[in-house]
Design a protein around this nucleic acid. Structure first.
Lengths: 261, 261
DNA sequence: CGTCAGCTTGACCGCGCTCAAGGCCAGTGG
DNA sequence: CCACTGGCCTTGAGCGCGGTCAAGCTGACG
């Protein structure tokens, strides 16, 4: 069922067809959630791991005075609440942007599966690492890039991530974000997002109309954005591990004694 | 040897004296590294886990045109390169701010120790979670706080973290950062950092002279900063775990079937 | 006593914000 | 089929937060 997830994980760790089948059987699709509704409130302790099947969601923080900051995007194939397996401090809210269809996996069952297949464990691990690399990248982007660079950077990231799950082709992708969403992501006002997009359009770097994004020359946009997509393709360095018994058997594939394909 | 680390970890998971002794024997203090020198370049694959014993370091990203963004602070008791145990994508540089004395632990030995003491594993895990919560907090801070709020927020965070390792008392702490460092952290220019600090001083919120920070009324600063320190004290919710065999035995303490003291 | 790093201050500028009005759909109901 | 509505995008005008440039100050150190 979680097609996009399987596709993405496969890129990390090369899943076998058995692995893929295990994942498919693990996930049970649930219904649609409407746009702009909260999935997971701050402080929740999720029991299941959720995977986005269709639609976009995000994690965000909000102040009493209304200011809002989007912390992360959750797109098809992304895992919402790894906290159900590797407990996490959830001091942010997760909400949908568009309508969203999700799949649920019991944390326990996923754990069993990871235990059976080192490749699956490794792939999930690398996906978590990619997520935290994205977080660092956002920190940097907000810190030292200009508005124009930030928007460009975000679009590069989104394109790269969507490509990894087969939702973008060479030309472009579907982008269901409002300019307000973009503003709350890169820390600028809606009006200025608009002007910045105009600017990028005028420079021939992007086309964006009716939620359809096109990037005629990705390399050019990448340069404007100072974007280097390496952080989205994590692959631990080869390592001649010689680790102790039980943790070894668990983490070895994660530690990547074999180079990933 | 890693006194501050042990103190911090103890707050997470309640280490036994045996645990503490294991950690002490694991870490071997190494010499001093001068201020403003790089410890770990982008792309490195560290073999040892480093712990800061004294001094401050940071992780940062830098562009060719000189712009620099500090991604994280590493203070006494902080772990630099967990990548040696849980492999990570290192797409940033780690460098010292002041002179720094570190301790090294072989990744392998630490793994063995974690394997022997679930409390140690759990404590390290929670420390990693706290680090990623800080990262999210920085993203939000850079995104929607004003310069004044960001500086205040950063000072609150630093005070709280230093208190956890016994390096700050009720009044204040040592703060070895230049105004340039602060600027590169909260994304504003050095000149404006200066003016913002003046402003905070004028409001009676802080005193900062000769690297000595004092916060007469923490609650007041906290309010200005919109700071809520909960994210720095991670404690997974209690959970009636019933997990599969081997992963269970490893991750159970992490999963926190027992409430932490 | 000179030097140098870091702090401070002033003047000016510009990126990005706010407020406000208008335009463009897509969906809805008459 | 068309008027109406509401969400989103667009554009203009004016302002202010924070940037830049430049000079002077302060204190630690040799």
């Amino acid at each position: 069922m979680p097609y996009h997830l399987i596709r993405k994980l496969g890129r990390y760790a090369g899943l076998s067809t058995v692995d893929e089948e295990m994942l498919r059987q693990l996930a049970r699709a649930s219904g649609w959630v409407g746009p702009r509704s909260d999935l997971l409130r701050e402080g929740a302790a999720p029991r299941d791991v959720c995977v986005i099947l269709e639609g976009w969601a995000c994690a965000y923080k909000q102040l009493e005075d209304g200011r809002r900051q989007i912390i992360a995007y959750l797109m098809p194939g992304d895992v919402c609440s790894m906290a159900a397996v590797f407990p996490d401090v959830i001091n942010y809210t997760t909400g949908t942007l568009t309508s969203v269809r999700m799949a649920q996996m019991s944390g326990r069952a996923l754990l069993t599966t990871m235990d059976r297949s080192p490749r699956i464990l490794r792939a999930f691990w690398l996906d978590m690492l990619a997520a935290s690399a994205i977080q660092r990248e956002w920190t940097a982007s907000l810190g030292f890039l200009t508005a124009r660079e930030r928007i460009a950077h975000l679009l590069c990231e989104i394109m790269t991530r969507l490509r990894a799950v087969g939702l973008a082709d060479a030309e472009g992708c579907f982008l269901p974000l409002t300019q307000e969403d973009l503003g709350e992501t890169v820390g600028i006002s809606t009006v200025h997002v608009n002007r910045t997009l105009q600017d990028l359009r005028a420079s021939g770097l992007i086309t964006l109309k009716r939620q359809q994004l096109a990037i005629p020359d990705f390399a050019a946009l990448q340069e404007v954005a100072r974007f280097d997509g390496a952080y989205l393709r994590p692959a631990p360095t080869a390592r001649d591990a010689d680790h102790p018994a039980s943790l070894r058997s668990i983490l070895d594939p994660v530690l990547g004694s074999a180079v990933c394909p």
